[in-house]
């Protein structure tokens, strides 16, 4: 039997999503977003434009006040992981116990999942820190524990809210490449929030540009460069072109907002 390749079905669709907080703040207005399996989507935009709000709604933390959100199939039990802007580790638990948390909540004992935990510890390069407590870790190490805690669930969709915001440029670019490798190897779908345009262009298959007051999507830019992306991509003219394009949109929005 011969079949034409079907268009990939959307994993997640946001349609005309509004979010008004209880105090009357209009955080989002008419946001449309279509996420296909395997995409790496970055959300960029000025502070307060509603990027975190989008991620929180996708994660089911609070409901939209308007519009609709649909997951592929009827199965609501989507396997989703969230890396918050701050590491949010439990101070009373060591690295292993912190990473074990999502699995423990699903009823899996530490003994049964210890090898998986060790493997994600290895992935984020924290070997030897297994039994340290959060206070004994640097900021970047804490963030890596937080990422490991998300990875250990083998998520279908990974939501990351400025995960590398607090890191130095070196660590950030190393974790960027690591993340890309993991994404390619595991066929994840990633929604990634960042302030950093360069990071967004380097990582993503698609960059969503948002504007503030009210929060909305103003541009949707596919980044047409093949993976794996070498470091030299960061200095290519194609890369620069995308960055300038996004920056132009952002500054245009800003001047409209001011004027």
């Amino acid at each position: 039997m011969i079949m034409t390749a079907p268009m990939p079905v959307s994993l997640l669709t946001l349609k005309d999503i509004d979010k008004v907080y209880q105090d009357g703040t209009v955080a989002l207005q008419g946001v449309n977003l279509d996420v296909k399996p395997g995409e790496f989507i970055s959300l960029v935009g000025p502070s307060g434009c509603g990027k975190s709000t989008v991620l929180r709604l996708v994660a089911g933390l609070g409901d939209p006040t308007g519009g609709m959100m649909a997951w592929q199939g009827t199965n609501e039990q989507h396997n989703l992981a969230f890396v918050f802007q701050d590491p949010a580790l439990m101070p009373w638990a060591n690295v292993v116990d912190n990473i074990h948390l999502p699995l423990k909540l699903k009823g899996q004992s530490l003994r049964s999942v210890r090898p998986q935990i060790q493997s994600v510890i290895n992935t984020v390069d924290l070997d030897g820190c297994e039994y340290r407590y959060p206070r004994q870790l640097s900021g970047g190490m804490k963030m890596r524990v937080s990422i490991a805690r998300a990875l250990v669930t083998k998520p279908q969709i990974l939501l990351m809210d400025e995960p590398f915001g607090a890191l130095d440029e070196m660590t950030r670019s190393r974790l960027n490449s690591d993340l890309l490798h993991l994404w390619e190897a595991n066929h994840w779908t990633i929604l990634f929030v960042t302030h950093n345009i360069y990071e967004a262009v380097y990582l993503s298959t698609r960059v969503i540009v948002m504007a503030a007051r009210p929060g909305r999507v103003v541009a949707d830019i596919p980044i047409e460069a093949s993976y794996p992306r070498p470091n030299s991509f960061r200095t290519s003219s194609q890369f620069n072109h995308y960055c300038r394009e996004i920056m132009a949109i952002l500054s245009e929005e800003k001047s409209i907002g001011v004027g």
């Binding site: 929180r56 918050f84 701050d86 948390l101």
Partner: peptide, 26 residues
């Protein structure tokens, strides 16, 4: 209990009891 940790527990489907034992009591 830390608000972000509470969100985390919610996302990973923690029951009321689990949240009490593993987050709020500590």
């Amino acid at each position: 209990a830390d608000h972000t940790l509470q969100n985390l527990f919610e996302i990973y489907g923690a029951s009321r009891w689990q949240t009490l034992i593993h987050l709020r009591l500590p």
